[in-house]
Design a protein around this nucleic acid. Sequence first.
DNA 1: TGATATAGGACTAAACTAGTCCTATATCAG
DNA 2: CTGATATAGGACTAGTTTAGTCCTATATCA
Lengths: 155, 155
Amino acid sequence: MLRISKMTDYATVLLARLAAAPERQLTAAQLSAVTHLAAPTVSKVLKQLHRRGLVSSTLGLRGGYRLARPAAQITAAQILDALEGPMALIECASHSHQCSIESTCGVGRAWQRVNLAIHRSLQEITLVELAGLGGEPVRFAALERALRGGRAERA
Amino acid sequence: MLRISKMTDYATVLLARLAAAPERQLTAAQLSAVTHLAAPTVSKVLKQLHRRGLVSSTLGLRGGYRLARPAAQITAAQILDALEGPMALIECASHSHQCSIESTCGVGRAWQRVNLAIHRSLQEITLVELAGLGGEPVRFAALERALRGGRAERA
DNA sequence: TGATATAGGACTAAACTAGTCCTATATCAG
DNA sequence: CTGATATAGGACTAGTTTAGTCCTATATCA
């Protein structure tokens, strides 16, 4: 179904909340209350986001989470990678070990190109757009540029 | 991981084989032998492809499968949809019933746009390109046009 | 010292995927 | 008419993945 996991979806929601109040530090409990997501789940996602460097945290009393950098510098691709590991449409694309029918199929390479194109476009979409903070709902132009400017593929 | 299932991958391989010999009718057993995929699995995938109208079949002795239409008229999006149902990055995007935090998250709409953009680009990639029959390995231009020309989103 | 908060990891239940197998039906050769 | 070949459809199982919870350790501050 070419889908992202719920955890990644939750991550986006939580990051959007943090992006909406960059000056504040929010606890997992506060984020849980605001988003109506279960507290343990919120904690789990935030811990993962911290591990991958998308949020910074403060321990102890008056602790909490905030974005590790401005929302404009956090991309959809980074969020996906943080929660689900490097993106790969098919297995051949993730491991470089050859698949059993590689010589006959020749399809893997094509899917890899598609994969690369999608990944590039996701790199151009920032948390600002995902959170709806950018004025326009989503700058579709970002998607266009990512692919129109993808010159590396032509080499 | 934003991945497609193995079944979809197999489907592409099988369709590529059929596309390489459009005049012939191949049996599931023949396709299994050529692709080195397990026979029951090949049958399963072909049946699904038949159900979704991507291949036509002949029953009985001297039966077999062939493409239901020219490879140029079969798109990556159609293959994905046939094997995995309508593409949806997140649940909100597939069902229109509101999610519990819709009012607060606002993220769903953004992901839907991304989803739509990807789907559009996949509609522009045909089996000809996936099968490597088009001269150039993959016409990356198709991906570009799909997004550059996606005017419906701006309305 | 105790309350609050994150860090890390173990654990379970549910859902999904991949793969196999069985039965029914259609076609054609002899 | 009969038997061999092939697809059609669906049931079934094993394995993996995902979602979600819980427990323990550690850091911070009143």
